[in-house]
């Protein structure tokens, strides 16, 4: 009852990077609980995926072969079966879009508590998860007052594990879900188009701070004047002010330009995930505590409506 069962994430026949980070988190947790680490791979060519995921510290990999498309009913059934078999103390899953689709159902099916989007976990007889609230403005330490829990983690907070290991690989004995309640019909790429912001060397990116659609002209002018590529954070695309192939972040594009100027972007974690690899990050924001400054190399704590026109003039342009 001190084991940890981690749930691998995979897409298009390959383990997702987060799976290797999840293994690291699982290894750290079992070091504290004194148990062993199990991994479960659901769907696709699970046994081949298990070979890829055979990393040091993983004791056993449980596999359920199925078609490649994601299906949460299969995850719930497979995880329930493994939990009944090995009786782990914690189920560890990625807080990915698919993780969000099965983990809460697993917790309900097992009648276990669930903690989501943990950025750190610790165990001292019971589990404490560190998680953010109020749009990353505060962190909280949340203690699970029951011995067991389903925990989803923000896997980017852990390093991927690289050492090869030699876990036992065993198929899951289950009466595969006979009638699935949902079926994947297709996967579409909405980020496609003539423009690929991922290839840009210089990006000027705009967020909620621009306030009104009419004001976008100001940022467009800066991009034109400097030859930069115009991009945006999620709210701008949600509002329909720019097309989705301009969106930087977890659900949009990941970019790595030489220079990234974030204008009026507070820096939600999903946005940071898509741009923190840029060489030089410059942030302009009125809130000195905005998370964007955590990843910025240079910051201006000021009003974009004052700074951007001045910047356009610096580069020889005329503000609108």
């Amino acid at each position: 009852m001190s084991d940890v069962l981690a749930v691998a994430d995979h897409r298009e026949g390959e383990p997702r990077d987060g799976s290797y980070r999840l293994i690291t988190a699982g290894r750290e947790l079992v070091a504290e609980t004194g148990g062993t680490l199990h991994l479960v791979v659901v769907g696709g060519d699970a046994d081949r995926l298990a070979e890829d995921l055979a990393r040091a510290g993983v004791d056993r990999i449980h596999t359920l072969r199925h078609e490649q498309a994601f299906n949460h009913d299969l995850y719930v059934e497979a995880i329930e079966a493994v939990v009944a078999d090995v009786e782990p103390q914690f189920v560890l899953a990625p807080n990915s879009v698919n993780g969000m689709d099965y983990a809460p159902a697993v917790a309900t099916a097992l009648d276990w508590p669930i903690v989501t989007d943990a950025i750190d976990i610790a165990y001292d007889g019971s589990l404490t998860a560190t998680r953010e609230m109020y749009g990353s403005k505060v962190q909280t330490d949340v203690r699970v007052s029951e011995p067991v829990a389903v925990v989803t983690i923000r896997d980017s907070e852990w390093e991927p594990t690289e050492d090869a290991g030699d876990p036992t690989i065993t198929p899951i004995e289950t009466a595969e879900a006979e009638s699935l309640g949902s079926r994947v019909l297709d996967i579409e790429d909405t980020g496609a188009g003539d423009l690929d912001i991922a290839e840009a060397e210089f990006i000027v990116s705009v967020g909620r701070g621009i306030e009104e659609e009419e004001n976008l002209e100001l940022i467009e002018r800066l991009a034109e004047t400097t030859g930069a590529t115009l991009a945006a954070s999620r709210p701008i695309v949600d509002n329909g002010w720019l097309p989705s192939n301009r969106q930087v972040g977890q659900s949009g594009k990941t970019v790595e330009p030489d220079v990234y100027i974030a204008i009026g972007i507070s820096g939600a974690v999903q946005h940071l995930a898509g741009m923190k690899q840029a060489d030089t990050i410059i942030a302009i924001n009125t809130d000195p505590d905005a998370p964007i400054f955590e990843v910025a190399d240079y910051g201006i704590n000021g009003d974009l409506f004052d700074v951007v026109p001045a910047l356009i003039e610096e580069f020889g342009g005329t503000p609108p």
Partner: peptide, 11 residues
Amino acid sequence: ELEGGLEEVTE
């Protein structure tokens, strides 16, 4: 809405 601009169409 999946990660990286992908969308899963599901019935």
